[in-house]
Structures are given as structure tokens and as C-alpha cells.
Design a protein around this nucleic acid. Structure first.
Lengths: 382, 382
DNA sequence: ATGAAAGCGCTAACAT
DNA sequence: ATGTTAGCGCTTTCAT
């Protein structure tokens, strides 16, 4: 698999000298003295804090958790003990009783090809991370690489490690939502779910951008430029985002020639292949709407190789507005912008709202889903 | 901050109908019958499994954890009970006693600018994720955005949530290693640490690529092409990777003109700015070694705008071999390849090795650090 | 306002 | 080989 495995593969040679052990993993009841670098000092417990402050464990606990209903003088005492001891709550213990983890899983199931060719992913993550950490929740990232991982992740989600999950890039047959539902884990989906009945499922919460509207905006722009033979490169059609963008295209071109439609896979290479295909089928095309910037960049390259000038001969519009790609192609890409980071934030917010019990006794809950707008960003390619 | 906040920002309007509540968060001692969609069923405990199988909790535990030393007949019985009940161990409880989390933190402290312009990050993550999940460990991703996050992350690392940490993109003043050390958390660093004394610290483990060697390879290639006025665009010089690549450059050009050196920031824009600067100072330059592909792409653009042909007038070599960039620039980038994913895998492996107690009683431990090789990938730009 | 005590679900000695 | 028992560190009634 790996191309080179430099050092550290086999059982490594021991380092020369007998370096002083940093204390193994055994907490060992050694003297509490915090020796210099001596490792694995037994962490102070709430008990020890209480003792030092001369109060009961209960009071110490109250202070640690906000200190409501504790006399100021005591509160201060406990606080001091906490500081001096460097006390940090043991969260496993806390979770055991509160049943809250303050952690949320983010599950991304996307083949390598796209995950790494598209900054999309990172942007989403950033939005989520921001929102989550603002609420003091941790983000646990679960990457799904192959079929086998579904099992592992399913186990994890059911393991009670996290309070909720954010699910991404679902394909039609994705088992994740089912798994999450089965284990009773609240979740929010990124992108409109596409399986039968999903649409009408009031229990489902998702965040999506207005892909269809975005598709329309792209074609509209191309038409306003006077283009009449407008092709499109779609994403993989087992994802709703691809289908929706294509539907937007069709909204404005209801009687379009099917030869003007080619399926890509959201990667530059796939975009290039699709472009070549389109060029072969309809050499007279004068515009292309690619359903992602990555695919557009591939298309641009193929067009250049074919001697077509952009935008003079063929106008190109992308989708995403991923700066890394769109601003650096030649010419820079005119594209449909979706605010990816914002979508991430929204997803997190929706989930958190649910976790913090927006469910009142009447059984009502906040709105389930939200669609974020898209808009055109004009650069040089169309 | 965000550009548009479509729906779901303020307190949302309640959904129309009174949708049936899916059971709040109260575990409620309802009837154990697994009603259809009725939510929040009280999770079965080891106790209930034991009871159902007619054994003690201890035996049930043994089976769940591998089943060594349990008669086959009983083992089977317990297994059946587990399946029927859909038992999943409560990990908080397990952690509380074993003091193992089966989770590792990955801390990335990198400003937005680079995190998102460079697939570097995702590749690293993939390598880590692969290795970690192979060992059934979870990856907990902690993103550091600003100074305030250090505190939050520090708290988290000290909170006993994770068994170890992988630290990235450290800058000279980064407090993370200190924090980790203080709380006694094993960690491995990505990239050679640069603070004073780090070099000789036998306790420090890191994985780095051979940046200096890579710098040499780049310059060597340029020289073999007959170039004599070779400039370089460095990364931010508060990171060792930048310094090391520059040192590699200097190894072959010990008497080089300082005017041929400009500092960038690993982003395309920064690379472009540095290129412009170099061009102004030494219009006669005939080659550039950019310390990252992202910066090289920016340089390429500036060169084009300045009317220089690449590689005819100016030869360009990048660093990283991030396909997304290198393969799609015009011309494609000749660059120094480092196997980023492999580095991620290595880091995880090193950490896991430590966690699984490679520390024997003599206090020895595996080798501390590893340097992965770099090599030239020739495309069109040089 | 504070303390005493019960337990969250599990593993690991220690019996047997 | 199996069961009994004692906690892990914390929150949370329930008394006081």
C-alpha cells in the first residue's frame, strides 16, 4: 500500500541509553508529590478537592458545576482547592451518571477521490467545529472508507460515546441513518436525503443548499450570455445534490438534447472525461455547466487541449465557489456559490438544539430542515 | 460573519402539526418491550445479559471481552443473550475502571488560510484515521482557530477523554506540547519541533519528512537544468518545515544572493506576493523553488502575468506533490513529493505503540522519531 | 445551604 | 471455570 516505509515499521531498535522511564500506565499509589517529570501522577478526584476544602463531595460537585446554591465563602474555598490541585473532572464518571457526553460524531462517508480533491469537506468541518465548540461540545470525526467501516462506525454510534451525529454525503443506500435511528441517536443530515419516503419523514432533519435553484442560476447566466447549446456535467446521480442541480438545469432547458448531459463524479478527472464525451457528441456546444468547481477545472483543461477558448468559444460555469479551485483556474471560474461553512454551522446548531431538549412536553420540536441559498459569482469563465 | 443566515437562526417557528414526540432524553423505566419506534429505550446492561444467560456478571463480562477461560456452552449462552438484547457495553463505565478510552485526539492548529487551501490536512487525517481505526481507536479531531481555543483544547486533553494526542503544525510558541506533558498525556508531533532544546529531548516523538533533503533535491534539479539564478519562496519561518527546506536550498547555494529569498505563508496568495517581490528584486532570475505547491501555484500565476514563460524563462519547482494542485496548474508542477498520508499513519502507529505499553520494565521504549524520505516528481514546470 | 448515601455499568481481584 | 465483591469518580436525591 504505502510507497515507502522508512524507519519505524518493524519492531524498532531500542534507543541507545537506558532512558529513565516516564512511569508506565500504572497509576500506582505512589507518593502524591508531583515529582518533576515523573509521569502518570494520580489525578486528583473530587473527593480530594472536597477534603482539602473541608467540605463534602456534594458541595464540591456543586461548585465545580456552577456553584448555584453554595455560600460564597465555601465556593471560594473549593475553587482554591481546585486550582491548587489542578483538578479536572473525570468525564467518564460524569457521563456514567449524567448520560451526557458533550460530544458529537461527524460521519463522512465519501470515497477518497472526492474527499481529497475538494476543500468542500474541510469547510464543512470548520463550520461544524466552530458551532460545536462554542457550545463546549467535542467533535468526533468518523471517516468511512469502505463497507467494513460501517460496522465499526455503527458500533461506535451505538456505544454511547456521543450524544448525537452529523451525517454527510449520504448515498441512496447508506445504512447510517437507519443505524442511528435504531440506536436512538439524534442526528442531522447534510444534504437532502434521497431514499424513498425520506422527503415526507417529519423525523428527518437535514441541511441542504438550494441546489436546484443554483442549477437554474447557472443556466440562466449562460443563456443571458446568448449561449444556446448549453451542456452540463453532473455529479454522481446517486446523490441528491447531483440530481437537484441537474433538475435546475432541466427547469430552464426542458427540451434539451440528452447528448448535452454527461455524468461526472465530482473529481477533476471525472469532469475532464465527461467534457471529452460531450465534445465528441456535440462539437458545437457553446457552454457548459459543471456541477462542481472540481469538475469544472477538469473540463477547462480538456477544453484547452481541444483548442477551445474559454469563455469565447465555450462559456463555463461551476458550482461551489471553492476559492482554492475557482480563483485559480485559467480563466478564473464563474460559479454558483454555496456557503459551505455556514451549512456546517447550521447542521451543528440544529443538532444541538435538539440535544438541549427543545422538545417540550407537548412533543413539539424546532423546524426540521433548512435550505440555504445559492448565488452566482462571476469571474472570467462565463 | 456568515454571509447569509437563511432560516433557522432565531428561535424557529414550531412545525405545524403536533408531531408525536420521540421520547425525550429521559431514560424512563418504561416497559422493556422494544416498542416500534418508541424512543430512548433503556439500554440493556451487562447485568441484564448475565441474568438472561443465567450466569454472573463477571462471566458475562469475560465473554464480552473475548471470552477467555469460559466454557464454550456458557460462552454461547451469553453470546445469545447479547444478541437478543442488542447489548452494547457502556463505554463510560468501562473507561471509568480500565482508564482506557480507545480514543486519540488529533489537534490541528493552523490558521484558516492554509487549512483550507491545502489538501495536505485531509491527507494527513486519512492516514491517521486508517491506522487508528485498524486498532479500534477513535479519532477525536480538535481544531484550533484562535488563542482562546488553546484553553478549551487544553482542558479537553487534560479531561481524560483520550489516551493520547497527535499534534500538528506547531509553531515555535505553541503551548500544546507543554500542556500535554503537564497532564501526562502521551503525544506524537507532526513535523520537527523547533523550540530550544527540543532537538535533544529524548522524550519527544515526532514524524517529519526530509524537508532539508527535499530542498536539496529541488535545487539540484534546477541546477541540472542549467539554471544559475535560482530563487526560493519559503514558508513562514516560524515553522521548522520552512526553515529546513530553506536550509536544503542553502546547502547547494551557500553563497546565494539574499535577494533571491522571499518569505511566503504557504498560501497561493502569499506565494504570488513573494514571487512579485523576487521579480522586482532580481528580474534576471531563471528559476524558483517554492516551498509548497500552493505557493508555487501563486507564483505561476504571477509569472504568467509578468509575461515569463514557464519553464522556458523561469523553471519552477514546488513541494508536497499535492495532486489537486500540482497536476492541475499550467504547466503541471514539477515538485518534491512527500507522502503525507504515510506520515499520518506513522504518527498514529508511533502513538499506539506507546499506548499499548511498549514501555517494558527496563524503561526502554521504541525509537522516538522518524524522518520520511522525499523525492522529485517531474512534470512540466521544470 | 450542606452533608450522607445511593448508585450509574463496568472490570478485576479474590474467593471458591 | 465461575461467582462474589469492591470499587472507578461522579451526580443527585433525600435528609438535615
Amino acid at each position: 500500500m504505502s510507497q515507502h516505509q522508512p524507519t519505524g515499521d518493524g519492531p524498532p531498535a531500542a534507543p541507545s541509553g537506558g532512558a529513565p522511564a516516564r512511569g508506565g500506565s500504572h497509576p500506582g499509589p505512589g507518593p502524591a508529590g508531583r515529582g518533576d517529570t515523573a509521569g502518570a501522577l494520580p489525578r486528583p478526584t473530587l473527593e480530594s478537592v472536597a477534603e482539602r476544602a473541608g467540605v463534602s463531595r456534594a458541595t464540591a460537585s456543586r461548585v465545580v458545576n456552577g456553584g448555584a446554591g453554595v455560600r460564597a465563602s465555601l465556593r471560594e474555598k473549593v475553587q482554591r482547592a481546585v486550582d491548587e490541585l489542578g483538578y479536572v473532572p473525570n468525564l467518564a464518571a460524569r457521563t456514567l451518571v449524567t448520560r451526557r457526553n458533550q460530544a458529537v460524531a461527524v460521519v463522512v462517508s465519501e470515497p477518497e477521490s472526492r474527499l481529497f480533491s475538494d476543500p468542500f469537506f474541510a469547510k464543512h468541518l470548520r463550520g461544524i467545529s466552530r458551532e460545536l465548540s462554542a457550545a463546549d461540545n467535542q467533535m468526533v470525526l468518523l471517516l468511512i472508507e469502505d463497507q467494513a467501516d460501517f460496522e465499526r462506525v455503527g458500533r461506535y454510534l451505538g456505544g454511547g460515546h456521543v450524544d448525537g451525529a452529523l451525517l454527510f454525503s449520504l448515498h441512496h443506500s447508506d445504512p447510517l441513518p437507519d443505524i442511528a435511528r435504531r440506536v436512538g441517536l439524534p442526528f442531522v443530515i447534510g444534504g437532502r436525503p434521497g431514499w424513498p419516503g425520506a422527503e415526507s419523514d417529519r423525523e428527518l432533519t437535514y441541511v441542504d443548499s438550494d441546489n436546484r435553484g443554483g442549477g437554474r442560476i447557472a443556466v440562466q447566466h449562460l443563456q443571458s450570455l446568448g449561449r444556446t447549446r448549453i451542456a452540463t456535467i453532473t455529479g454522481p446521480l446517486d446523490q441528491t445534490s447531483s440530481v437537484d442541480r441537474l433538475d435546475g438545469y432541466r427547469d430552464l432547458l426542458p427540451d434539451g438534447d440528452p447528448d448535452l448531459i454527461a455524468e461526472g463524479d465530482f473529481t477533476p478527472d471525472g469532469g475532464g472525461r465527461a467534457m471529452a464525451e460531450l465534445l465528441a457528441r456535440r462539437p458545437d456546444l457553446d457552454a457548459v455547466f459543471a456541477a462542481s468547481d472540481a469538475m469544472a477545472s477538469g473540463a477547462l483543461r480538456v477544453l484547452r487541449e481541444a483548442g477551445r477558448r474559454v469563455p469565447e468559444d465555450v462559456a463555463v460555469v461551476g458550482f461551489d465557489d471553492v476559492e482554492q479551485i475557482a480563483a485559480w483556474t485559467d480563466p478564473p471560474l464563474t460559479t454558483v456559490r454555496q456557503d459551505i461553512e455556514d451549512m456546517g454551522r447550521l447542521m451543528a446548531r440544529l443538532l444541538l438544539r435538539r440535544l438541549t431538549g427543545q422538545t417540550d412536553t407537548t412533543g413539539r420540536r424546532g423546524p426540521t430542515s433548512v435550505i440555504t441559498p445559492t448565488r452566482l459569482v462571476v469571474r472570467g469563465s462565463a
